[in-house]
């Protein structure tokens, strides 16, 4: 049976600081006898029981929450794009002689606003 310190420094004797008595030989012998009589306790599901009781890792939960947020934003953007009457807007723009550049600019601007709004909404 190895003690904690020996676990870190295999093969080493008992820590010097632990042997502060006047009879280090007796201390070393006693330490050895105490350790000899100590059985190794099999895990027998102990580790599993501990792990089952641990709280969910907060970092993992954060990453999972961020993933859900991005998915929500993407889904919202998809619905907006699906419902937006691109055809009508384009034909109306052509009828009113609005330039394609200003139309694209307006589209990008409104997309940015929608995205920013979606992200803000998801974060709160």
């Amino acid at each position: 049976m190895v003690n904690f310190e020996q676990h870190h420094r295999k093969g080493s004797a008992l820590r010097d600081t632990a042997i502060e008595g006047k009879d280090p030989v007796f201390d070393a012998w006693l330490s050895e006898q105490l350790q000899l009589g100590e059985p190794y306790l099999d895990d027998n599901g102990f580790c599993d029981r501990v792990m089952a009781e641990l709280p969910v890792s907060s970092r993992r939960a954060e990453r999972r929450a961020s993933g859900f947020q991005y998915l929500a934003v993407l889904a919202a953007s998809g619905i907006v794009a699906w419902q937006f009457p691109f055809g009508e807007v384009l034909s109306e723009a052509a009828r009113q002689s609005i330039s394609l550049y200003s139309l694209v600019g307006m589209g990008m601007l409104s997309s940015l606003v929608v995205m920013a709004g979606g992200i803000l909404a998801a974060r709160h």
């Binding site: 003690n3 904690f4 310190e5 600081t17 632990a18 006693l30 330490s31």
Partner: peptide, 9 residues
């Protein structure tokens, strides 16, 4: 101290 090897501190 003797069985676990912890220092006195």
């Amino acid at each position: 101290s003797l069985q676990r090897g912890f220092s006195h501190e």
